[in-house]
Amino acid sequence: MVHALHEVWRVLKPGGIVIDLRPICVDVPLFILTSTGWKSAGITDRGPERGDDVAANRAMRIVVRDGSFKRLRLAYFNLNYYWNDLKELKMDVEGRWKGDIVISREIWRHARRLFKNGSGQSRIWIPVRMKITRYQKL
């Protein structure tokens, strides 16, 4: 990662900007949306991804400390994912999100119960917290 950041430093013009956009690997809530509102089924575990997040933070700290970049601005926002049913969410958790997120049996059970109570109008909502940081080439 540090090597990639030094490569980016090379191809940037003087005073150029790096934008680091990525999810924050904190535990993320799983909500069931119904026609009358939303209910939390519990907190998912994004622990498996945390190692990558720590490594990226460390790489940025190194290139700031070595004088390649300075940090200008940090902001946060939510990026929302929606599924039509729990079977579809399960496919993603066991497929393209495999190893990134863990949903316990207890949360699945709770989510199924809430989903059924939604009278056929339920959807699943996972808001992922994102951070966006702006750095300048020195």
């Binding site: 090597h3 090379r10 191809v11 013009k13 150029g16 790096v18 934008i19 956009l21 990525r22």
Partner: peptide
């Protein structure tokens, strides 16, 4: 990212 096939001093912004 570790081996960018690009010349130096080319871009205003890089987005990860």
């Amino acid at each position: 990212g570790e081996a960018l096939p690009l010349p130096s001093n080319t871009f205003d912004i890089s987005v990860f």
